[in-house]
Structure formats: structure tokens, C-alpha cells
Amino acid sequence: MLPEEIHDIAAALGREVVAARTLAGGFSHETCLLTLAEGPPVVARLGGPDPAVEAAVMATARRYAPVPHVLLVLPATGGGRPAMVLEHVPGTLLSHVLAEDGAGLGALGSEVGRVVAGIGAATFDRPGFFSGQNLTVRPERPWSKQLPEMAETCMAATPPSRLAPATREGWVELCAAHAPALVSVDDHARLVHADINPKNLLVTLARDGWRVDAVLDWEFSYVGCPYGDAANMLRFGADYPPAFLDGFRTAFAEHQPDDLPVAEDWAYLGRVLDMFALSDLVTRPVGHPVADQAAEQIRQWVARGVPD
């Protein structure tokens, strides 16, 4: 974080910043914990596509899930990057808890599944992507029509060393084969976080059990089918304790909004929706660790001939 960025944020807050420490963050932004001369610390996120829209999404999502308060948004700082300043929420990253493989992870999975399902209770008038701080939703072609085309475009843009030509061709064919299944969810118009994973949830083991303290990083959110969020959480599930996965799956299905009965094949539909994200992820530059994980997932699915 640059000194001029700290200066601009301090001026906007009207409080002196006495220390800044980098936190774990996403690949599209830098996240820092700022200690203030007065009052509790705050979190600054610098960069990202459009923090003003993200802040508006977070304000809406707070009615359905634990989401940090946004304190201010700066369109640009002295360093040229936009900034969002959030309240600091104590808690432990879910990724750290799962790495320890301790007791009670079935209950933790249940709590995470309940919270993720709750995000889908937020409804909009149509599926699509947000435009502007008033959260207008741009109309989109049905996901079932978009998937084959996106897969082909992304495979052409993937670094040559990441996926073999035969795998790329197989992935495009696999996406085209399963895209028609999305017809059943093309008209879902629910809030989708679109980056639900253990690095974006803060949790605490309280006296009465596990609690999700905050759902972080809403920059990729859109309006569509909530099954995609479940698939996002389960994408690299082979790395997570089985008890957590079982608890998550059961609770996500049980806590779907009352006006959205869960489809019997919700897990499969979620995986098909996740083909969008996997296709996009592998276009990242060489050395991107999550992109390499996504490439391995694609190889496995192509080898088996199913998104499983």
C-alpha cells in the first residue's frame, strides 16, 4: 500500500492512520488492515473492477448474510487505485480452520451451508450482471446459450502450457453437451456471490457452536442461480474434510429460500454453472495457483466425460 493511498484514506476518514499491514487477499486487489489513532481498526481494499457497485451489492446482501459495513468508497487514491474501506470483522478464515481438520467440522459445514443458501433469498427482476450503484441488472442471453461460446473463447485465450490442445477441445465439447441442462435455471434471478470459497469467509467457534462472522469479497457477484455458489464452495472439495462437505451439502439444500424449492439435481446444475468460472480461471497468466487448480479440474472432468 502506497503512502499517498494511506494519506487519502486517512483524510477521507478524518482520522490518522498509524500503521498498515497487508492481509491475505484476492488476485485483483490488495487488502490491508489499518490501525487508526482513534477508534477500531478498519480494512482497506485497493483495486478491483468497481468498488462502488460492490459496496451497493454488500448493502443489499447484509439483509440476508453477515457482511461487513462499508465505511467509504474512493473512486481513486493517490496511487491511482480505487479503494473501499470496511469495518474490521474479527474471525478466522475458513481456509485456516479446514486446514487443521479438527473436530466439529460437520457442524461448521452446516452453518456455512445455511449462510450460503441465505444469500439466494435476495431477488431481482431478471438474471444478468449489475450496472451502476443502483444495481440495475443488464439483460443477458440465457446461460444455457452462453456457456459453449464462452468455453470456446476461453480455451483460445488459455496459456498454451496450461492445457493440451486435446483437453481444450474436449472441454468445449463437454460444456456444449451439458449446457442445455441450464435451461431449467436460466430464469433464476437470485443474488449470487460468485466467489464463495474458504478464503472469503470468516468464522468463529463460539460457546453455542460455529458462527459465520462475515462473507467477504463481493466484486464478482451477479444475478442468477444460487446453485453456482454451492458449486464454487465445493469446487476443490477434495482438499476439505469430508464431514465439512457433508454438512455443507445437507444444509445448503435444506435452507433454500421458501420460494425457491431446491431441484433434485441442484448439485449437478451447480457444477455445470461452475464451468463458466473454470473456463475463465484458466485464462489467467502462467503461475496463477488457482488457475492451475482449475486446469487440473478441467483435465479430470474431460477424462471422465462428466462435470463430476
Rank of each mutant, 00 (worst) to 15 (best):
E38R: 14
P75W: 10
D187N: 13
P289R: 12
L281T: 07
Q256F: 12
V215S: 06
G118K: 03
E296W: 01
L205P: 03
S28W: 06
V97P: 01
L2T: 14
G270K: 05
R249E: 15
P160K: 00
Y64T: 14
P257T: 12
P159H: 09
P160S: 14
R249F: 06
W266V: 01
L182A: 11
V43G: 01
D246P: 06
E30F: 05
A11W: 10
L163K: 05
T92Y: 00
R63Q: 15
D274I: 05
S161Q: 15
L234H: 04
G47A: 07
L46F: 07
D217Y: 07
R235N: 07
M58E: 05
V302E: 00
H193E: 05
V57H: 03
A103G: 14
W301T: 02
P307W: 01
N232K: 07
R114W: 12
M1R: 10
P261D: 10
E100P: 08
H88S: 13
E219C: 00
W210H: 09
G14A: 10
L2I: 12
E173D: 10
A194D: 13
V89K: 04
P198D: 10
A61H: 02
T77W: 02
Y268E: 14
L135V: 09
V57W: 00
V172E: 06
L216F: 02
E169R: 13
P127H: 07
A20H: 10
P257H: 12
V115W: 00
Y268N: 03
H288C: 04
A59N: 00
A37S: 15
E254N: 13
A37K: 12
F236Q: 10
A151Y: 05
